[in-house]
Amino acid sequence: MLLIYCPYCEAHREEEEFSYQGEAFITRPSEPDALNDEAWGDYLFFRKNPRGLHAEMWFHAAGCRRFFNALRNTVTYDFHQTCRIGESFSDNSDTHV
């Protein structure tokens, strides 16, 4: 069970309160019609899937029901940072939350 720090509730909560939303910072193309198949397929399906630090989005579904971003290690599962939407991670990625 992961303990996740919600940057809105400003508290650690159990993983079951959250829902995982996958890779963070994926923006829907502003003009989908202008894209070729490669670019559209890339937007829809291709993900970074790194072994190590991963920027990802979580949703506090059974809490404040707000989305936030997190920087998490996909091998140790340690959360390094979480931040509100619109904010960016601080440079010091070694901090644990």
Binding site: M1, L2, E15, E16, S19, Y20, G22, N49, R51, H54, E56, R72, T74, V75, T76, Y77
Partner: peptide, 13 residues
């Protein structure tokens, strides 16, 4: 488990 992970372990719930 819902999250990406290479750790060969998951969450208890």
């Amino acid at each position: 488990d819902s999250y990406n992970g290479y750790g060969q372990r998951g969450s208890f719930h």
